[in-house]
């Protein structure tokens, strides 16, 4: 379980997060939506300790990550996988080496075993048999898929998705959304997703958090948010879905 308690964050004079509190349950897909530049990425990076809150605390499975030293953080990060916006694949390595990278760093599995896991994960994300390709040869959607294969290589308990559909054409975005749903059915772990794509959010989310103007204006089950009579929410969603 991931929990935010009264988290504040500013960059200079710009306030990006204002008293955020919420708990993200295990084994569900939780989506944070909001316009770009409202601190969704910052909120997500706090889970892995890449950003620290100015005030308040962030808890992952009972560990307060904002107070941990480096060694403790690395212990927490071992059970988290993260898909970055553009995949963040290491350019100097092939697709297979990228997916194998966390395995080589953190386990003492033999090369044969690693090769088996790599091809299994690549098949899982719908990219079988592209082990020998280089990141620069892949399209944006393919890079995200490989990034996802790398994120789940160590079979993490929590997977974070930073804007998984941004910069993709609608068909590819749908395909990624399907992939997220399918993965969640197979892996049964906690998914946290950042998105500004409203229709996609309604398709995949179990829980929805709406970030607006640096505050968490709504947080709850999908149906609850969809049925909400709150004027701000109605305007927010209708503007983005064209309803």
């Amino acid at each position: 379980m991931i929990e935010y308690k009264n988290v504040d964050k500013s960059f200079g004079d710009l306030r990006v997060l204002d008293h955020i509190s919420c708990a993200i349950p295990e084994g569900k897909i939780t989506v944070f939506v909001g316009p770009s530049g409202v601190g969704k990425s910052v909120l997500m990076k706090m889970i892995v300790g890449l950003e620290k809150p100015d005030a308040g605390s962030v808890w992952v499975d009972g560990d307060e990550v904002n107070r941990m030293d480096e060694r403790g953080l690395y212990r927490v990060r071992r059970k988290i996988g993260m898909l970055f916006q553009d995949g963040a694949l290491l350019d100097s390595m092939t697709v297979a080496e990228n997916v194998a990278f966390p395995l080589r760093q953190h386990t003492s599995k033999r090369e044969k075993e690693i090769a088996r896991i790599v091809s299994e994960k690549l098949a899982l994300v719908g990219m079988p048999g592209c082990e020998g390709k280089w990141p620069s040869e892949l399209s944006g959607g393919m890079r995200k898929r490989v990034g996802l294969a790398r994120a789940i290589a160590l079979e993490p308990e929590i997977v974070l998705f930073d804007e998984p559909t941004s910069g993709l054409d609608p068909l590819m975005a749908d395909a990624i959304d399907d992939l997220i749903l399918e993965m969640q059915r197979k892996l049964r772990c906690t998914f946290v997703v950042n998105s500004h794509d409203i229709p996609g959010t309604f398709r995949i989310a179990d829980l929805i958090g709406v970030l607006y103007d640096s505050r968490l204006v709504a947080y709850g089950e999908r149906e609850e948010i969809q049925r909400s009579r709150d004027q701000l929410l109605i305007r927010f969603f209708s503007r983005h879905t064209g309803r």
Partner: peptide
């Protein structure tokens, strides 16, 4: 240039998330 490109493309953050220390690696 290599390290700056990795920083700009978010690959250093990715290393940290994969629990690989960028100084060491």
């Amino acid at each position: 240039a290599t390290i700056a490109t990795m920083r700009v493309k978010g690959q250093i953050d990715a290393l940290e998330v994969m629990a690989v220390n960028p100084y060491r690696y």
